[in-house]
Design a protein around this nucleic acid. Structure first.
Lengths: 188, 188
DNA sequence: TAGTTATATCGGATTATTCATATATGCATT
DNA sequence: AATGCATATATGAATAATCCGATATAACTA
């Protein structure tokens, strides 16, 4: 899947692996993130597949830059992926829910600690969406020379993040309260 | 992470790999799922680590059953994991959002198709939560001999799924509408 | 009688993820 | 002056997850 993300970015302009990491960190991280070494590996695969080509720009002081450009075959790979509808929903992997699920026996008190901590983290995440991201997005708009369509869709993904965090906080509050009242009943 | 899920189930009672798959499919799938071969591989790792032991139950007609039982070291591995709070939120991987993000250029019409299809899928998912899962949960409660604490927490994870699906549907409706109006403005 | 579902386990190949390493600059802090 | 930390750039190794399928057999269904 990462390969399509990389092609998606390279479809706007040529970039290095390092660039891609930075741009992902300021745009798609909240619904798709990747490690640097993973990006480099995927770029190598894409190169051998002929979807991108590398130009080496020698630098005296730093490691040489490898600038990747999307090819015509690469463009059609991307187009094909974009045009193929998903027949399933993206599966979730939520560690917190796993923990909650298995905390019935012994660790009933620990759950509350965990939930309260996650509440803080999600609160933080939500405020990030509201402050930091618009600025980053402005940078990206310039960098990628985005049009009205791009901006609309990018905003839609940001909105998804906000709704997700709000939903999560609501669930946390609800759950914390329920657990607290059950515990009070128990000790009475 | 899967190893903790498996330990979590085996903490209730001894089970085979096949059992584990079925129980996961009727309880944690929506926030943690795994493939059968992955389960078998993880069980093997857990066995070499000494967290579980296998008893082979010969069967004449079928392949022999390998029943796994959690050990004392295994129990403390699980306890330790449950007691260690998460310092981060679980990262999301949402393919649909990736597609939306990169559909600005050419495929602006395809996006709507994709969003409408996902709407159907999530609608289905939501109705599953409301009908099927309570029955499955009742089976699990019996099977795992769950107490009041277990049930409360299991319900909490189910509730998370419902809220998630409702949120997703709201986002889809909102986004579909926004894109539609932008397209109408464009063609006028 | 052919096809599907259920029971039961495992191997191999491919991808993904995390952690560590290399190298060189500049900036801030002690 | 020395130390550490952030920036810039890339790669390797180890572990984890996923996908695809092989192997058995029995029972049910079309």
């Amino acid at each position: 899947m990462l390969k399509y993300a990389l092609l998606g970015f390279l479809n706007y302009r040529p970039l290095t692996g390092y660039d891609l990491k930075r741009i992902m960190d300021s745009s798609t991280t909240n619904f798709w993130h990747a490690d640097l070494s993973q990006i480099y590996k995927t770029l190598k695969t894409l190169e051998t597949e002929g979807a991108i080509v590398a130009t080496i720009e020698p630098q005296s002081e730093r490691p040489d830059k490898k600038i990747y450009t999307i090819t015509e075959p690469g463009r059609s790979v991307l187009e094909k992926w974009l045009g193929t509808p998903l027949t399933e929903t993206s599966p979730l992997k939520e560690v917190l829910l796993l923990k909650v699920f298995f905390s019935g026996g012994s660790n009933s008190k620990h759950v509350l600690t965990q939930l309260r901590l996650q509440r803080e983290l999600h609160q933080l995440q939500l405020s990030k969406y509201e402050e930091q991201i618009p600025i980053e997005m402005a940078t990206n708009i310039e960098l990628m020379q985005a049009g009205a369509n791009d901006v609309l869709l990018w905003e839609a993904t940001r909105r998804a993040g906000i709704l997700y965090e709000e939903m999560y906080l609501r669930w946390l509050d609800e759950t914390i309260e329920r657990i607290e009242t059950q515990f009070q009943e128990r000790t009475c």
